[in-house]
C-alpha cells in the first residue's frame, strides 16, 4: 500500500525561476492497484514520480510505503521498495554490461552486495526463463552488451529488472514515450502481463490518453502540481477520450491544450 499525503515541492525557491511543481498531492493506493497518471506538460506528473523515488527530498508531506515512512530515505535506500522504468531507454540499464549482469544487478536491489559471485548458475537459468517470456529473443543473447539492444528491447529488459525483486510500488515514467507506436504497444502489453502476474501496485505516467484509459484500474489527472481528477471502477471502464477532455475543462475551467495528448 502506498500513502502519499500533502507533498509539496518548489524548485528554485526565492528566485525569479521559482516553480511550485507539487502543490499538495494526496494519494492512497491499495495493494495491486494500477493507476495511470495523465496531465499536460508541466502538470507535475514526472515530478510526482521523482518525489516518490527520492530523486530529491520533498519540502513537505509524507510518503509511506507498506507502513514504512520513506520520506527521509535517500534515493538508493528507497530503491529497496521501488521498481522504476524511465522515459529514456538509456537510463534504466548499464549499456556496457551484459544483459545477464544487468538482471543480476537488479536482482540484488535492496540486498547486501558482498563478495559472492555477481551472477550465479541458478540465477542464469531463472533469467533465461524470464527473458523467454518477453518473447524478444533475448534469452539467446544473455551475454550481449545491453548497448546493442534497441530502445524497445531495453525498455522491456528494464521492466523485467524493475520487477525481478517484487517491488512494493512500481513506478513507470512515460516508459513508452520514446518508442515507435508498434513497439510501445508491445511494451505496454508486457507491462500489463507482468503487473497482473505479480499483482503489483503501480503508478504509470503517460502522455497518451487512450493508453491511460485502456490500462490500469484507476486514472488520475494532474494539473499545476495537484491531482484534479480521480476516476476508478466502472466509470473508468466506460471512459472515452472525449469524456476525459470534457471532465478536464469542467474541473480546471480551461481547455486541455496539450496537442500531443489529444492526438496520440
Amino acid at each position: 500500500m502506498l500513502e502519499v499525503s500533502n507533498i509539496k515541492k518548489t524548485f528554485n525557491a526565492g528566485t525569479i525561476n521559482e516553480k511550485r511543481a507539487l502543490n499538495g498531492v494526496d494519494l492512497k493506493l491499495e495493494d495491486g492497484e494500477f493507476v495511470t497518471v495523465i496531465g499536460g506538460n508541466g502538470a507535475g506528473k514526472s515530478t510526482f514520480l521523482n518525489a516518490m523515488a527520492g530523486v530529491w527530498p520533498v519540502d513537505e508531506g509524507r510518503i509511506v510505503i507498506d507502513g514504512i515512512d520513506v520520506t527521509g530515505l535517500s534515493e538508493y535506500k528507497r530503491a529497496k521498495y521501488l521498481g522504476r522504468v524511465f522515459q529514456d531507454p538509456m537510463t534504466g540499464t548499464a549499456a556496457d554490461m551484459e544483459i545477464i549482469e544487468n538482471l543480476a544487478l537488479a536482482d540484488r536491489r535492496g540486498k547486501k552486495r558482498g563478495l559472492g559471485w555477481g551472477v550465479t548458475a541458478s540465477e542464469k537459468d531463472r533469467y533465461y526463463e524470464l527473458l523467454k517470456e518477453l518473447d524478444l529473443g533475448l534469452e539467446d543473447r544473455m551475454t550481449a552488451k545491453v548497448g546493442l539492444l534497441s530502445g524497445g528491447q531495453r525498455q522491456a529488459l528494464t521492466l523485467l529488472m524493475a520487477t525481478l525483486q517484487k517491488p512494493n510500488v512500481l513506478l513507470l515514467d512515460e516508459h513508452t514515450a520514446a518508442l515507435d507506436p508498434k513497439t510501445a504497444a508491445k511494451v505496454l502489453e508486457t507491462t500489463d502481463r507482468i503487473i497482473e502476474e505479480n499483482h503489483l501496485t503501480t503508478l504509470m505516467v503517460t502522455h497518451n490518453m487512450r493508453d491511460a484509459i485502456l490500462h490500469g484500474n484507476r486514472l488520475i489527472m494532474m494539473s499545476e502540481g495537484r491531482i484534479i481528477l480521480n476516476i476508478a471502477g466502472e466509470e473508468k471502464k466506460n471512459l472515452t477520450v472525449e469524456d476525459l477532455l470534457h471532465k478536464f475543462e469542467e474541473v480546471s475551467g480551461e481547455e486541455f491544450t496539450n496537442d500531443k495528448a489529444i492526438l496520440s
Binding site: 521501488l82 524511465f86 548499464a94 563478495l115
Partner: peptide
C-alpha cells in the same frame, strides 16, 4: 556482486541508484 555494482556505478550512475 560488489564489483558488479562498482562497474555499474561507472557505467550508469542513475540506473545504479535506482537499483
Amino acid at each position: 556482486a560488489q564489483g558488479s555494482a562498482l562497474r555499474a556505478t561507472g557505467n550508469n550512475p542513475a540506473m545504479s541508484r535506482a537499483q
